[in-house]
Structure formats: structure tokens, C-alpha cells
Write a protein that binds this DNA or RNA. Structure first.
Length: 476
RNA sequence: GGCGACGUGGCCGAGUGGCUAGGCAGAGGUCUGCAAAACCUCGUACAGCGGUUCGAUUCCGCUCGUCGCCUCCA
């Protein structure tokens, strides 16, 4: 299995530190606002990655932090006139609620910065003791100049950086490149006692402290959005390697940005689209399919057209399950299916599994994996046509095909179930309408038949006439 | 100024030194009272210019264009 490693800028064979186990740390959101689509991408991608790794037998420990103390949170609190802690609490809860709705489960550990202050202070202290950081004015700064290999992740050279020329006000750093690991508290800000007086963690230190705590040194995979490569991840590496002397994370994986009108979606630009708003209009699986339809490292344009396409893809999967399900429900188990189509379907089952695996093993190429699944969908549909024509179904074979599709889609986080077509337990009123429509059709009164169909449609169901009679499908 | 990514048919989007991506939309057909779903058929795409090669969309160089990072950002 190969992953693209930002550190080496190459696809590399993945070898876990501990055989059979994978430790992943992902930088989650800073909770000063509702989760937007851009935030959702790494959440979804790494959740799918963990699912896939588990499906092939790895024991996965997925750690995804929530940053609950930060300049932006304090800023927001000031604007709203509420304590910073309350802002963090409110949006952390909202983050959990909104992402829960995607149905991908939770990461194994979701550590919060404010619950790890002792670890953070300890890390700062070790940096100071090692001469890699220094206190000034109640804050502690990392000495970038002493960090060997600084810039190895981002390719940045310190002497070429723009902000070399920028001096921030109110800081007394030795070098403009130095960054805070501990920020001295200003009045009204959340703070904790430390050897350097009251203060709070710098932006990068929490991730170093928490990843080392939960995953140990030289853990497997560190991920996040591409916009975190510099300075966040670069600084995490500098801090960790300054105290451990060992490599921090061995594989760095970064997802591409979500754009709108070809511009990055970000809170500072203000062109964000909230996950909760999305979920009011779309099935959560539409978002997953939207993300998975392109490679995780590519930028992805958030547009109505692209979402509609993802929605159509979901419909195609659902229709396939519906067709296979109806056929299986009526099939006589002993019946033999159409021979030549059966061979095709048997072949398609093997091919889909093999292609799916090959694509996922190649840097988690979910777009290719989906293509493999659509290949199986087509074969199932073809088989359904042949079965309808001949009246014979090999239920075992068709069942295997459907179950494989369900299993592989499930790995990708797409579950399709009875709730999607609800053929049973339909309200009596609807059944009566269908009966009336059938009666009207037999009588040749198509105006009345269509009127009945319209009423069924108004109730949220679509009628599909099949050789076995009319069927109901839930509309989305 | 520095670092990096990318430019594929109407659209989205994989991928490859010579062999079908896939999806969406569209056209025609099958089925249907009409639909819906599904199936069948249909599109000689790889920014431009050079180079390497028997052969390049795929490798190399240049040009043009787009985007991201270098400041908070997933």
C-alpha cells in the first residue's frame, strides 16, 4: 500500500511502526465558529481512511484534536461579550453534532488542548531546558534558528520568507521567525499557571503534546489540510524533534482545499458554506460522495452542479440496490439464473473487489474505487434486465454481488438501507392510491391514474411500474 | 521574491509511454398507457511550443494560465 508523503514528496510504501497497527493524528478544527465544508473534508477523508485500514485488518488508532483555546476564540468571545470558554464549548458541541450527522462515527480519541495543559507546560519546559526555547515577557518562544532541518516539510527556507521582513508589534523575540509555544496572558484571557507566569498554549504546541501523548514517538501518520503544512506542521515537527531527538511523524498526508468560484473556502475570506446548512438540503452521503469523487489531494470546487452530480451518483447506487433487492425478494432460491449474464456477474464481482483494493492501496484513490463500484453496479443492472426477461434469478449469485457492493460502499462510509426505498410498511392511504391507480389504468382512465400518481408523489414516493406490478420508491 | 500543486472530451473527474476509466448532462433506441428506473448505441479529450522516443496525453524543457502556502485558516 502506498501513500503520498508530503515530507518526501513521493508516494511511498506504507510500513507501520508497529506491525498491524496504525496510529493517525489529524489536526481538527479550532472551534470559534460552525464547521464548514472545508473543515469537513479532512474529517471525512481520515474517517474513510481509518475504515479502509480496518477493513484490511489493521488496528487503527485515530486521534483528531479539537483546538479549544486560541486567539480566534478569544477574539470571537470579545465580540460576543461572552467568556472564551463558552465560545469554545458552544462550537465544540456543534462540531460534534454536525459531524455526527455524517454517519461516519467518531475518531478514537478527540483530545482538547485545555485538557492537556500539564503535558503542554512540560513540553515547553523541556524545550527551554534544551535551549530550544526561551522566555521573554511572560511568553516562551521557540528558537527556530537552532532547529536542525527546519523547513523540511514545507520546503521553506528561512532566509527567503516574506515575514522575515515583518516585525510584529509588542513582541520581543530574538528573531522574527521564532514562534510562541506559550503565550503570556493578557487581562481577561483564559490562562493557566506556569513556570513563566499565567498564560496559555501557543498554537502548535498542543498538537505536538497530544500526538506524542497518545501515539508516541515516530508515530505513523500525521494529517490535516494543506494549509497547515506551513507553519503549523513545520513547527510541530520542530518542537517534537527538539525534545525527542527522533523523527516525529513518519508519513504526512494533506488534503486539498475546497474552493468556491475557484477560491479557497476559508473563514477569513468569508466564503464559507456551513456543514449544518448543507445537511438541511442534502443527504449526508451526498457530501461523502462529493468528496470521494476526486482525489483527496486535489482541490475541489464546491458548487451546486458538483453536488447535484454527487446526488445523482447516490441515486444510481440506491436504484441498483433497489433493483437487486426486489429481485431477490421474489426469487426462488433454487432457480437458476441466466447463464451468460451469470458468468458476467461472477466475473464482475471478482473484478470489482480487485479493482477497489488496488485503487485504495494506491494512495487511497477513492475516485478510482468508486469507478470500480460503478462497474459492479452496471453488471448487477444488466443481470437484473436479463433476469426479468428470462424470469430466472440465481439468488445466491445476485446476493453475493449486492452484498459485496454494500460492503465496499460501507467502507467508504456510504450505507444504503431499507429506509432508502421503504417498500414495506407503507401507509394504508398510499396503498389505496396505488390500488385506485391500477384500477384506473385497467379502465384506460389515465387522467385519473396520473392524478393518483401525483398524490403519491406529493407524499414523497415515486411509483415504478415493473413486471411484478407497481413499486414504491422513496424520493430524496 | 521563495516554496508547492495543477491545466484531460459539454461539465466533474481518474489514469497511462502504444491497450475501455467512471459519473453527470445530451442524442437515438428498447421497455412503459405515459413516466420512472434500467439496458443498448453515440463523443477520434488530454493548455501551447519544442525535445527525447519506433511511438507521448503520459518523460524533459520553455511559454501561457489557474490555484494554494510563506499572516489566522481544514
Amino acid at each position: 500500500m502506498k501513500f503520498y508523503n508530503t515530507l518526501t514528496r513521493n508516494k511511498e510504501e506504507f510500513v507501520p511502526r508497529d506491525s498491524g497497527k496504525v496510529g493517525i493524528y489529524v489536526c481538527g478544527p479550532t472551534v470559534y465558529g460552525y464547521v464548514h465544508i472545508g473543515n469537513a473534508r479532512p474529517y471525512v477523508f481520515f474517517a474513510v481512511m481509518a475504515r479502509y485500514l480496518r477493513s484490511i485488518g489493521y488496528e487503527v488508532n485515530l486521534v483528531e484534536n479539537i483546538t479549544d483555546v486560541d486567539d480566534k476564540i478569544i477574539e470571537r468571545a470579545g465580540k460576543e461579550g461572552v467568556p472564551a470558554e463558552q465560545v469554545a464549548e458552544t462550537y465544540a458541541q456543534a462540531y460534534l453534532k454536525d459531524t455526527d450527522a455524517l454517519g461516519l462515527g467518531r475518531p478514537d480519541i478527540e483530545p482538547m488542548a485545555t485538557r492537556h495543559i500539564p503535558e503542554i507546560i512540560d513540553l515547553c519546559r523541556r524545550l527551554v531546558e534544551a535551549g530550544m526555547a526561551y522566555e521573554t515577557g511572560g511568553s516562551v518562544y521557540f528558537r527556530v534558528g537552532r532547529s536542525a532541518g527546519y523547513g523540511k516539510l514545507s520546503g521553506q527556507k528561512t532566509d527567503q520568507m516574506k515575514h522575515c521582513e515583518l516585525a510584529r508589534e509588542g513582541e520581543s523575540k530574538e528573531s522574527p521567525l521564532d514562534f510562541a509555544v506559550w503565550k503570556g496572558a493578557k487581562p481577561g484571557e483564559p490562562s493557566w499557571d506556569s513556570p513563566w507566569g499565567p498564560g496559555r498554549p501557543g498554537w502548535h504546541i498542543e498538537c505536538t503534546a497530544m500526538s506524542l501523548k497518545y501515539l508516541g514517538q515516530s508515530f505513523d501518520i500525521h494529517g490535516g489540510g494543506q494549509d497547515l503544512i506551513f507553519p503549523h506542521h513545520e513547527n510541530e515537527i520542530a518542537q517534537a524533534e527538539a525534545v525527542t531527538g527522533e523523527s516525529f511523524a513518519r508519513y504526512w498526508m494533506h488534503n486539498g482545499m475546497i474552493t468556491t468560484k475557484e477560491e479557497k473556502m476559508s473563514k477569513s475570506i468569508g466564503n464559507i458554506f456551513l456543514l449544518r446548512e448543507f445537511l438541511k438540503k442534502y443527504d449526508p452521503r451526498v457530501l461523502i460522495l462529493f468528496f470521494l469523487g476526486s482525489h483527496y489531494r486535489s482541490p475541489l470546487e464546491f458548487s451546486t452542479a458538483n453536488l447535484e452530480e454527487a446526488a445523482s451518483r447516490l441515486e444510481r447506487f440506491k436504484n441498483c440496490f433497489w433493483k437487486a433487492g426486489s429481485l431477490l425478494a421474489e426469487a426462488e432460491l433454487s432457480a437458476a439464473g441466466p447463464a451468460s449474464q451469470g458468468e458476467d456477474l461472477a466475473g464482475a464481482i471478482e473484478r470489482a473487489e480487485a479493482e477497489f483494493q488496488a485503487e485504495m492501496q494506491d494512495d487511497l484513490n477513492t475516485a478510482g474505487a468508486l469507478a470500480a463500484l460503478f462497474g459492479l453496479v452496471r453488471q448487477i443492472n444488466e443481470y437484473a434486465v436479463a433476469a426479468a426477461n428470462t424470469g430466472a434469478v440465481d439468488a445466491g449469485l445476485l446476493g453475493r454481488a449486492r452484498d459485496l457492493l454494500a460492503r465496499l460502499l460501507g467502507i467508504l462510509g456510504i450505507e444504503i438501507g431499507a429506509g432508502d426505498y421503504a417498500e414495506t410498511e407503507v401507509e394504508a392511504e398510499l396503498l389505496e392510491l396505488i390500488r385506485q391507480r391500477e384500477e384506473a389504468r385497467r379502465a384506460g382512465d389515465f387522467t385519473a391514474a396520473d392524478a393518483a400518481r401525483d398524490r403519491v408523489a406529493a407524499a414523497g414516493y415515486e411509483i415504478r411500474d415493473t413486471p411484478q406490478g407497481p413499486k414504491l420508491v422513496k424520493k430524496t
